[in-house]
Amino acid sequence: MSTRLNWLRAAVLGANDGIVSTAGLVVGVAGATGDRGTLLTAGLAGLLAGSMSMAAGEYVSVSTQRASEKAALALERRELREQPDAELDELAGLLEARGLSASVAREAAQQLTEKDALRAHARVELGINPDELMNPWHAAWASFLAFTAGALLPLLAMVLPGAGWRVPVTVVSVLVALVITGWVSARLGQSPVRGAVVRNVVGGALAMAVTYGVGALLGAVGV
Rank of each mutant, 00 (worst) to 15 (best):
L160E: 11
A196I: 05
N200G: 15
A140I: 03
R123C: 00
N200W: 01
L94R: 09
R187A: 14
M158V: 08
A109E: 01
A105D: 07
A92G: 11
A105K: 02
E96P: 04
A139N: 02
T113R: 11
S143E: 09
R194S: 14
S173M: 10
T113L: 04
L88N: 06
V124F: 02
L88I: 03
T148F: 09
A186R: 01
S101H: 12
E114Y: 02
S143K: 02
L156M: 13
G127W: 10
A117K: 10
L178M: 13
P130G: 07
G127P: 07
T181G: 10
I180K: 01
S185N: 11
G150P: 01
R98N: 12
P168M: 11
P168N: 10
G99L: 10
G182S: 10
T148L: 11
T181F: 13
G204R: 00
V201N: 05
V174Q: 02
D131P: 01
S143D: 09
R199V: 14
S191K: 15
V197Y: 05
V124K: 04
W165S: 14
E96D: 10
V198S: 04
V159H: 07
A151P: 01
M134C: 01
I128H: 05
D131W: 03
A142Y: 00
T148Y: 03
L156I: 13
L145I: 15
V201P: 06
E96K: 12
G182I: 01
V159I: 15
A117Q: 11
L133Q: 10
A157M: 10
F144G: 00
T148S: 14
W141N: 07
V159A: 09
A163C: 00
R106Q: 15
N129T: 10
V202Q: 12
A177N: 05
T170Q: 06
Q111Y: 07
A105M: 09
G99M: 08
L88H: 13
L145G: 02
S103I: 13
G189I: 05
H138V: 14
R166A: 07
L112S: 02
V159M: 08
A196M: 08
V179F: 14
M134R: 15
V176L: 15
A151L: 09
V202K: 11
R199F: 06
A120P: 02
A196H: 08
L88V: 07
V184C: 02
P130E: 11
D116W: 06
L188H: 09
G195V: 12
R119N: 13
E107H: 12
V193G: 08
Q110P: 00
A149Y: 01
R119P: 08
K115P: 00
G203K: 05
S143A: 15
G203N: 05
L152W: 03
V124G: 06
L100S: 06
A146H: 04
L126V: 09
V167T: 12
G150I: 08
T170W: 02
H121R: 11
G150R: 03
E132K: 13
A146F: 07
L152R: 03
V167Q: 06
G150Y: 02
L178V: 09
Q190A: 15
R119I: 09
V169P: 04
E107G: 09
G127T: 13
V124W: 01
L156Q: 07
L94H: 08
L91V: 03
S101N: 13
L145H: 00
A140P: 03
L153C: 10
S103N: 14
S191R: 15
A149V: 14
A122S: 13
V104F: 10
Q190F: 11
E125C: 07
Q190K: 15
S191N: 12
